[in-house]
């Protein structure tokens, strides 16, 4: 066996071993961290509008009444409209609760965001996984740049990965 072939064989074996580990982790049903189960992003639509979006992984859901938004600096003046209707579930302790699956999009209004400055949208959410797990409230933050002068809608910005339990 040539050295080259040996190296290739070793690389193949390593790849298969990695697959084995991944398969095992999957078989154990490793739940996603909340910032991946409930991925938050925000995009600038115009100087007064931010599109906030949660992309929810399959098998996970968010509670409608546990979603809260805030802006930094607070002087940017965030207004949050009523969130879209969710799927209604009867909870024996809480009564009628609404949940989102797949995703949720809402347009947030800014009263006074300064052009040329960045703002931070903080989104708090709380949700669960169908496998029978719930996550504590999690805050994800996205920085959105407010351009100078006329506005070109920006691409959505992914939320920073850091949350309180990291």
């Amino acid at each position: 066996m040539t050295l080259d072939r040996l190296a290739r064989t070793f690389a193949n074996l390593t790849a298969v071993a990695a697959l084995g580990v991944a398969a095992l982790a999957f078989a154990q049903g490793s739940p996603l961290p909340p910032d991946r189960a409930f991925r938050f992003s925000a995009a600038l639509i115009d100087s007064r509008t931010i599109e906030a979006r949660f992309t929810i992984a399959e098998g996970y859901y968010l509670y409608r009444d546990k979603i809260h938004f805030a802006v930094e600096p607070a002087t940017a003046g965030l207004t949050v409209p009523p969130l879209p209707e969710g799927k209604v579930k009867e909870d024996q302790f809480f009564g009628r609760v609404e949940t989102y699956r797949g995703g949720m999009v809402v347009r947030l209004a800014l009263k006074d965001a300064k052009p040329g400055k960045a703002i931070v949208i903080a989104a708090e959410s709380q949700g669960c996984a169908d496998i029978g797990l719930c996550y504590p409230p999690t805050v994800q933050k996205v920085t959105v740049a407010i351009p100078e002068g006329s506005l070109v809608p920006g691409a959505p910005t992914e939320a920073a990965k850091k949350t309180w339990f990291n």
């Binding site: 064989t9 193949n12 071993a17 697959l19 084995g20 580990v21 095992l24």
Partner: peptide
């Protein structure tokens, strides 16, 4: 033979991880 060896390595890695 190679496939068998790869399988054995994968199994060992999986068990080790577990």
């Amino acid at each position: 033979a190679l496939l068998g060896a790869a399988g054995a390595v994968a199994l060992a890695a999986g068990l080790g991880f577990a």
